[in-house]
Deep mutational scan, measured.
Amino acid sequence: SGEEFIAMYTYESSEQGDLTFQQGDVILVTKKDGDWWTGTVGDKAGVFPSNYVRLKD
């Protein structure tokens, strides 16, 4: 389980282990570690910068 966040911006990365997503995607955040959080979008999982998302209303 985790908290749902909304992507405010598209995040694209070629780094292994990074979670890429489109603006407006719902991200289920499973771990918060400083500026880099872990989460899932659909069947993808990985880390992403926390300043790209906001808490879902």
Rank of each mutant, 00 (worst) to 15 (best):
V47P: 00
F5A: 11
N51G: 12
T38F: 13
I6D: 05
T30F: 09
T40I: 06
S1F: 13
G17D: 07
G34D: 06
V47K: 15
V41K: 15
V29W: 01
V53R: 01
Y52V: 05
V53L: 06
Y11A: 04
T40D: 02
K32S: 06
S13K: 05
M8V: 13
S13C: 04
I27E: 01
T40S: 15
W37L: 05
E3L: 07
F5Y: 15
A45T: 14
I27P: 09
D33H: 09
G17A: 09
E3G: 05
K44M: 15
K44R: 14
E15R: 14
D35P: 14
D43C: 10
L28V: 13
K44G: 10
T20G: 08
Q16H: 14
G34C: 06
A7N: 03
K32V: 02
V29D: 03
G17I: 07
F48H: 02
R54I: 04
K56N: 10
L19T: 01
L19S: 01
G17T: 08
T20A: 13
G24E: 04
Y52R: 09
L55T: 12
T40K: 14
D33P: 02
E3P: 04
D33S: 09
K31N: 15
S14A: 10
G24T: 02
D57Q: 15
L28K: 15
Q16T: 13
I6R: 06
F21I: 05
N51L: 07
I27N: 07
K31A: 12
V53G: 02
G17C: 12
M8Y: 02
S1A: 07
S1M: 09
R54Y: 14
V53S: 03
S13P: 08
Q16L: 14
G42L: 08
G42Y: 04
D43K: 13
I27W: 02
W36D: 06
G17R: 06
G42P: 02
M8P: 05
S13F: 03
G34Q: 15
G24R: 02
V26W: 01
N51S: 13
M8R: 12
V53A: 06
V47E: 08
T30V: 07
V26A: 11
D57F: 01
S14P: 09
W36T: 08
D25Q: 14
V53N: 01
G2E: 09
K32G: 01
D33C: 15
G42A: 07
Q22Y: 04
T20I: 07
F48V: 00
Q23D: 07
L19K: 01
P49E: 00
E12Q: 14
D18E: 13
Y11G: 03
E4Q: 12
S13V: 01
K44F: 02
S50F: 05
R54H: 09
V41E: 02
V26Y: 06
S13G: 13
F21T: 01
S14H: 13
L55R: 13
E4F: 07
Q23Y: 08
I27A: 02
G24Q: 08
Y52S: 08
G42H: 12
G34E: 04
G2V: 08
D43H: 14
G34R: 09
Y11T: 03
W36S: 11
T38V: 10
G2M: 07
V41H: 15
G17E: 14
V47Q: 11
T10S: 09
V47Y: 05
A7E: 00
I27L: 07
F5E: 06
K31F: 05
F48Y: 02
D18A: 13
V41F: 14
Q22C: 11
E12G: 08
F5V: 06
G46P: 00
Q22E: 07
T20E: 12
G24W: 01
V41I: 14
S50R: 15
W37P: 03
K44Y: 13
Y52E: 03
Q16K: 15
T40Q: 14
Y11P: 05
Y11F: 12
D33N: 09
A7F: 00
Q16R: 11
E12R: 09
G24C: 01
I27K: 02
N51K: 11
A45E: 14
Q23W: 03
K44H: 05
G39L: 02
V47M: 10
A7T: 01
F5K: 01
E4K: 05
M8K: 07
S14C: 12
S14E: 12
T38G: 09
M8G: 04
D18T: 12
E12C: 11
V47C: 15
S1L: 12
T10K: 10
E4N: 05
G39A: 02
G34F: 06
T20Q: 09
D33F: 06
L28F: 11
D43G: 09
W37R: 03
I27M: 03
W37D: 03
